[in-house]
Amino acid sequence: MINIKSIKPGPKPKKEDGTPDRRRRVTPEKKEDYPTLKPHKHTPGH
C-alpha cells in the first residue's frame, strides 16, 4: 500500500495585533517588484 503524505505548510506571519495573517499579500509599494501573472489559456476538454 502506498502511503501519501501532504506538504506541511510553514508558520503564518503575525499581524500587528498579534493574530496570524490568513494569507500572504503583496503590499502596494512592493507591487512593482513582482511581474504580473500570464493570462490563462483554457484548452477545451482538459
Rank of each mutant, 00 (worst) to 15 (best):
E29A: 13
E32F: 12
G18E: 02
R22V: 07
I7E: 10
K8E: 11
D33F: 14
I2W: 00
T36G: 14
Y34G: 01
K14T: 06
N3F: 04
L37Y: 14
L37Q: 13
E16K: 10
R23P: 00
P11L: 07
S6E: 08
K30S: 10
P13V: 00
R24D: 11
Y34V: 14
K14G: 04
K41T: 13
G18A: 03
N3V: 10
T19W: 00
I7C: 10
K5S: 07
S6L: 06
V26Q: 09
S6M: 08
P20R: 03
E32T: 09
R23W: 12
P11W: 04
E32P: 06
I2R: 05
E29I: 12
Y34W: 14
N3L: 08
H40R: 14
I4G: 01
I7W: 10
V26S: 12
T27N: 12
P20A: 02
K12P: 02
P28H: 03
I4Y: 05
P9S: 02
R22I: 07
K15N: 14
K38M: 07
G10E: 09
S6A: 08
T43F: 05
D17A: 04
P13R: 04
R24G: 14
V26W: 15
D33R: 12
G10A: 05
E16G: 06
I7Q: 09
G18Q: 01
D33C: 10
T19L: 05
P20E: 04
I4E: 03
I2M: 01
L37D: 10
H42N: 09
K5T: 06
T43D: 07
P35M: 03
G10Y: 09
R25C: 09
K15D: 13
N3P: 01
H40E: 12
P44L: 06
P11C: 02
P20V: 00
Y34P: 00
T43K: 13
P28F: 07
P39M: 00
K31R: 15
R22Q: 12
P44Y: 05
L37M: 11
P28V: 00
S6Q: 08
K5D: 04
T36P: 09
P20H: 04
P11Y: 04
I7N: 11
K15L: 14
H42E: 11
M1I: 06
R22Y: 08
K14I: 07
K31F: 11
P28E: 06
V26M: 11
P39I: 01
T36I: 08
P39Y: 03
G10H: 09
R23L: 09
G45T: 04
H40C: 07
N3T: 09
E16Y: 04
N3C: 05
T36F: 13
K41L: 08
P13S: 04
R24Q: 13
T43R: 09
G18H: 01
K12A: 11
R22A: 12
I4W: 07
P13C: 01
